Simulated scan of single mutants.
Amino acid sequence: MSSTTTLHVRPATLRDAKQIAELHNATVRDAFKTIAIDTPIPVVPVDKRQAYWREAIEYSEPQVHVAIDDDKIVGFVGFDRSRDKGTPPTMGEIWAIYVATSHWGRGVGLALWDAAREGLQEEGCAKVSIWLPIANDRAVRFFELAGLKREMSSAKTIAVGGVKIEEIRLSRTL
């Protein structure tokens, strides 16, 4: 971001779905390059991701906000109530948060986190959680700096396109 640009975060519109899908695919590739795994993560076709994000935006499940820099989407966050079984309705969750690698370390993630936190509080959530790959040191460090703590007993293995990823849940009070 240059000094003449202003980053702002706003709720996503249906017109944003394609840019969100393209950004999602690009950042998944870049984020998973930082994780020491031997098999590349398969990329979901843009049209399939676009359909997912269009539906999310249309029905607010999850709620989606985008970070804009110079009229370009440089990050997005999806948040809503927790999808984990047995959690109370006051537990929110960051379903997804991605920032273009060109904007890593520039405050975009923080702006998206702030928007999600405020949105969850408006929905009556008292706590928030996020599932992250344990090996994604950058993302884990970011959310720990935001005050989320690792729930060590939550560690699990998930399959992402044939690749096994170890995940852990982090949470905090809002």
Rank of each mutant, 00 (worst) to 15 (best):
T4S: 12
T6F: 10
H8V: 06
V9Q: 06
T13Y: 03
Q19K: 09
Q19H: 09
E22L: 10
A31V: 14
K33W: 13
I35S: 00
P42V: 09
P42A: 10
P45H: 08
K48E: 13
Y52P: 03
Y52M: 13
W53K: 01
R54V: 14
R54I: 12
A56L: 08
I57C: 01
Y59E: 14
Y59N: 15
A67G: 03
I68H: 00
D70V: 01
I73V: 07
V74C: 11
G75K: 01
G75N: 00
T87R: 15
P88K: 11
P88G: 15
P89H: 03
I97R: 03
A100F: 06
T101Y: 15
S102H: 13
G105I: 09
R106K: 15
G109Y: 06
A111L: 11
L112C: 02
W113F: 13
W113V: 09
W113N: 05
A116F: 00
A116C: 01
R117M: 05
L120I: 00
Q121W: 06
E122S: 12
W131V: 00
L132D: 08
D137P: 04
R138P: 10
A139R: 12
V140P: 03
F142V: 04
F143N: 04
R150V: 11
I158P: 00
A159Q: 12
A159R: 13
V160P: 03
V160T: 11
G162T: 07
V163K: 00
I165R: 04
I165Y: 11
T173Q: 13
T173G: 08
